[in-house]
Design a protein around this nucleic acid. Sequence first.
DNA 1: AATTTTATTGATAATGGTTTTCATTTCTAG
DNA 2: CTAGAAATGAAAACCATTATCAATAAAATT
Lengths: 154, 154
Amino acid sequence: MRKCWWRGKFEGAGLRLTSPRLAIIDILSKTTKHPSAEDIYLTLRQKYNNDNIGLTTVYRTLEILVNMGIVYKFDFGDGRTRYELSEGPDGFRHHHHLVCTECGRIIDYTDFIDEEKELLDRTEKGLAEKYHFQIHKHLIQFYGLCENCQLNKP
Amino acid sequence: MRKCWWRGKFEGAGLRLTSPRLAIIDILSKTTKHPSAEDIYLTLRQKYNNDNIGLTTVYRTLEILVNMGIVYKFDFGDGRTRYELSEGPDGFRHHHHLVCTECGRIIDYTDFIDEEKELLDRTEKGLAEKYHFQIHKHLIQFYGLCENCQLNKP
DNA sequence: AATTTTATTGATAATGGTTTTCATTTCTAG
DNA sequence: CTAGAAATGAAAACCATTATCAATAAAATT
Ligand SMILES: [Mn+2]
Ligand SMILES: [Mn+2]
Ligand SMILES: [Zn+2]
Ligand SMILES: [Zn+2]
């Protein structure tokens, strides 16, 4: 688990690894949640209140990180985009999501991920051939009710 | 292939099957695309220009249809919500999507759908048990470049 | 070191898809 | 017919995201 695996990507792109950018990566690397741009902005104000990082910068930085493949971007259906480091604090962890449509709770799961991966690879290959599509990524999500929301919503 | 399979759902909910609603369902049932609310609104103005159906009504109707399970709602990443009848013109057709991130083209595919279904069922069952989640639906999408966009973007 | 160039930043304004509001119209029940 | 409920659409409000732009900071060049 080498640290700061993203540094190289920044240098290669002629981009500067500034303190706002480091702070945003830091926040993402220390959470298991899926914060929105505003979530990150608010965390910055609380914990790093020495500097005054603008919401615009948060949005801009996230877009850069997404384009470099350092961060993944998700829409879980609650009207705001949510973000997640592509490589977790403990190294790589490919996973998919379970989304509660009532309270918005997100669960990362890795169960069945190998079987899924195998099927997805095969499907991607088949689809690429049949539709001449060049597939770059896939998205799998399950929607439903979490334990709490099942009880509170009969 | 019984026609107007949705009538029952409307009656059961105490909702009226008005002409704007019928027109919107009609448009959805005659396309293989995935129109946005505005797409539907514009089609209404062109083809059914006798009446003057407001964009608000389109949004409202779509939400009702989604809540009744008659229509599916998708986010393909282009900033607008897109809709599709849950049961196609030729009866049921469960499928997933291939999305071109360059031009927004959407391909419905049913290849591998049986294998996917089998794995999804198994995964849903496993996840439901492990996380006590009550799963209602799944989402699978592949993102990449369509044939055209591969050529025009080297 | 001084100067030029380039990248970054954040306050503000603008954008644009979607929702709310609300007065009016249409349908339904009695 | 009449009272109540549901539906409609124009306009205004909402709100996450993006564009503008002048100011700042860092790198490159002289
Ligand atoms: Mn996750
Ligand atoms: Mn489709
Ligand atoms: Zn929940
Ligand atoms: Zn394309």
